[in-house]
Design a protein around this nucleic acid. Structure first.
Lengths: 261, 261
DNA sequence: CCCCGTTGTTCGCGAGAGTGAAACTTTTGT
DNA sequence: ACAAAAGTTTCACTCTCGCGAACAACGGGG
């Protein structure tokens, strides 16, 4: 799912020992529980080296040793929920997202940009059961989903280019935009109509609509997004009905950001 | 809230650079957004040192630079939700906890032990609004709450002593057991009656009841816990009504663990 | 019951990475 | 426009980190 840069950037401005520890943690997150030997061969490091990293990380709570090897620790959940709750958009956006989800009865997402990725910060499920492949905390490329494109549309061309350089434009499905020129045209369209659509691009065949949330100066704060199965969220329903509701919620959130802070 | 060991254990088996990175991250989690200079003075390190750690951690997604300084990144949420969902008890315990919460209309928790702490893995809120100071991902000492005591009660004396040595017995309120002897007597009582009570010990003046969940071999897998305001969850209601319901759920979960794995 | 293959832990050494002080640059506030 | 503070880069020294090898602890099979 990642571009596969491996261990991370090097140079004199990075701490390699830390990078090695984080590589171990990422290996465990992606592969599930693993033994010392597995991790050592999976990360191309000496057993003794991995051993010391594991000791350090366990002592700090970042991982746990169980019957079937080492696993990611619930300390991440502690830090993660803290990060979620203390995000500037969360407190302001959550009640509005909840209200919108109750009204439309579909999944509504609150999405922000971080490290060049779209991060799904919060979800209200609404009534309908709809199994999306996304979940809270999910990180994906900005260009591949409506919520991310809504965020990109608020950025300057150079900012978008910086993100393309950093994260690339990988294809999630055969509908994904993988060409910068096409992407910029799409972002123009989004700016004009005020919302981003996502039709059959997702791996699960669902549709979605995303609307940007902006700071007072026009810089992107995030986006809200309604997602669901294509048969219920067809294009005309998205364009004619949902877009107005989302734009209303967008305005409410932007007002709250200004006067409740 | 922590015993305050600071940076972590040292010795030849630990990676100090990693510990320094994790110290920076913990500082940010506990103090909220902070600038380079603040972090440097707050962690007793040179600015240039902290600088390189921050670069490394940001590049890896563990933190983000914003207007008001560096903050914990939502990558923690990604890893944390993953850790939660993939925990052995989560998949099995969640549906049963949900069912119990619907029935009793109170908050029901799923709690596990990790690194010598009680970790609140999952919550179903039930109907009633009750603002507990706990939240998903919270880590606290095992001896200070009913859920944790229910877990301790399933451990051998030496295991309990090991945890006392590691984490101590700090007082959360004036009702907290801070003496090993008293604690072991309490654990005996819990083993006899099958559940742990928590009356007015918590900082928020709430009551709670915790019931252990055990593996087939008797070792502790975690516990379930109902918590709420003391006026609704008085002692006789906990003992006479809730305890049976909880013990029923406990059995369901233990059965699922055996035959659905 | 012992042997052997594997996994986990300890040891010792050399390279080079991490550290902090200080110089330098940029930003902020007045 | 200036001063003060924050952030970034440079540099030399030291000690950590990483590796390989040796050692110990299992565990399964003959």
């Amino acid at each position: 799912m990642d571009s596969g840069t491996g261990a991370g950037a090097d140079g004199p401005n990075y701490v390699e020992a830390t990078q090695k520890s984080l590589t171990v943690l990422r290996y465990l997150k992606e592969h599930g529980p693993a033994t010392l030997s597995e991790i050592a061969s999976g990360t191309d490091s000496a057993k003794s080296t991995v051993y010391r990293h594991l000791q350090t990380l366990e002592e700090a709570g970042y991982l746990v040793e169980t019957d079937d090897g080492y696993r990611i620790g619930q300390l991440y959940l502690d830090y993660g929920i803290e990060a979620q709750r203390s995000h500037p958009l969360y407190e302001v956006g959550k009640p509005k997202v909840d209200a919108l989800a109750e009204k439309v009865g579909e999944k509504v997402w609150l999405v922000v940009e971080e490290n060049g990725y779209a991060v799904y910060l919060y979800l209200h499920s609404g009534e309908e059961l709809y199994r999306s492949f996304t979940r809270v905390g999910y990180r994906g490329h900005l260009h591949a989903f409506s919520a991310g494109k809504a965020i990109l549309a608020q950025m300057s061309k150079s900012e978008v280019n910086a993100i393309i350089d950093r994260r690339g434009l990988p294809a999630y499905t055969d509908q994904t935009i993988t060409d910068p020129k096409t992407l910029f045209a799409e972002l123009d369209r989004i700016r004009q109509q005020g919302y981003a659509l996502h039709l059959n691009e997702a791996v699960d065949g669902g549709n979605a609509i995303g609307v940007p949330i902006q700071h007072e100066d026009g810089s992107p704060a995030g986006s809200i997004c309604v997602a669901g199965p294509a048969h219920r969220l067809n294009e005309s329903y998205l364009r004619d009905e949902l877009s107005d509701l989302l734009l209303g919620t967008k305005n409410e959130i932007e007002l709250s950001m200004r006067y409740e802070a």
